[in-house]
């Protein structure tokens, strides 16, 4: 009996193994679009992927969250087809892509407004200027600027507690670039978290707090946060302090804290039918989906121009090798796209 059992187990295993090696054609090769990158762009790409997979059931789409920098590292090695980015590609990342012979098409997909937030019980802050933000966040302020009264006369003599995203975040890169003048130049003595909900909860429970993060997180937590209008003291961008909103971001008056966000498509991947279909679907349906997940859409012409850019396979970044650029206007982007 025992011997019979053993023999039959052996037989089953033999059949199993032979089937493994004989059954190639039954399993259709699956088409997979690989995307990774920014957690800021993730909700948009996820929404597009969800709708896309409903329409094209044979194509699988995976969307990772490695941060803009982490995404570009994988993209530059050729591990992904598309990279989500909340800032333009940096020189180092350009070099990595060049080394591995990867060319890319840069496509803006939406705007994101960075919001500066305080506690609702904070009665003294009615607006802040870019200079005041710089004074507060620049590296030399570490351990020096610790009280509200040091920022502007008339603010109370109370300790200020700061909240912001961690150093892997594209939001951190962008904010430090436009406020402190250099990417990643920031004081280090603040509560840092890659999880924006931690920042929301932190500021909501501390009357002396100030922090910054993406507008979408403010929109979902309006009842327990207070948004601060920002004055860049440049009247060409609208006079006085400006509150971020759909309108002020789209008409370029909420500067410099509004930024375009991107997807980067590898040209090699764009030759694959499934990637081409996905990108075209993305740009054709972005407007509604972007609004739905809490971001600010580009104008119709911009999406059309981006689609044209993709179809003509215009490679490279319009930002040259500069990385994040202060106050990029969509009209300028468009002009460069033509």
């Amino acid at each position: 009996m025992n011997r019979f059992l053993r023999l039959s187990i052996f037989g089953i295993m033999a059949i199993f193994l032979s089937c493994v090696f004989s059954a190639g054609e039954v399993f259709a090769a699956s088409k997979l679009v690989k995307i990774d990158g920014s957690s800021t762009v993730f909700p948009i790409t996820e929404a597009v992927a969800e709708e896309f997979q409903k329409q094209y059931s044979g194509i699988k789409v995976m969307v990772g969250i490695s941060g803009t920098g982490g995404g570009f590292k994988r993209f530059g090695r050729g591990e992904t087809d598309i990279s989500d980015a909340s800032r333009p590609i940096k020189p180092k990342e350009v070099d990595l892509a060049k080394e591995n012979n990867i060319k890319y098409i840069e496509l803006p997909v939406a705007y994101d407004g960075l919001s500066v937030i305080v506690n609702p019980k904070n009665t003294w802050v009615d607006y802040l200027t870019v200079k005041e933000l710089k004074k507060l966040w620049e590296p030399s302020s570490q351990g020096v600027i610790t009280k509200w009264s040091q920022i502007r006369e008339g603010f109370p003599d109370k300790e200020i507690r700061l909240f912001g995203p961690g150093t892997d975040s594209g939001t951190f890169d962008y904010f430090t670039e436009v406020i402190c003048g250099k990417s990643a130049a920031s004081r280090g003595d603040y509560t840092a978290s890659e999880d924006d909900n931690v920042l929301v909860e932190g500021i909501a429970s501390d009357t002396q707090a100030l922090g910054y993060f993406g507008l979408a997180y403010y929109e979902q937590n309006k009842d327990k946060l207070k948004i601060v209008p920002i004055d860049d003291e440049n009247d060409a961008n609208g006079i006085g302090p400006i509150t971020p909103s759909l309108k002020s971001v789209m008409d370029d008056t909420y500067q410099p804290l509004a930024r375009p966000i991107f997807i980067y498509v590898s040209t090699k991947a764009a030759e694959k039918d499934e990637v081409k279909k996905f990108v075209e679907f993305y740009l054709k349906n972005a407007k509604d989906l972007v609004t739905e997940v809490g971001y600010i859409p580009l104008s119709d012409e911009s999406y059309k121009a981006a689609l044209e850019r993709f179809q003509k396979r215009i490679t490279g970044s319009v930002f040259g090798r500069k990385g994040a650029t202060v106050g990029v206007k969509m009209e300028e982007l468009l002009r460069m796209e033509r």
Partner: peptide, 19 residues
């Protein structure tokens, strides 16, 4: 290892009854 991902599909099933 990088599995923080939106995935709306399943790995290929190990068994198929067809063909």
């Amino acid at each position: 290892i990088g599995a923080l991902t939106y995935i709306a599909f399943l790995p290929q099933s190990p068994v198929a009854f067809s063909g």
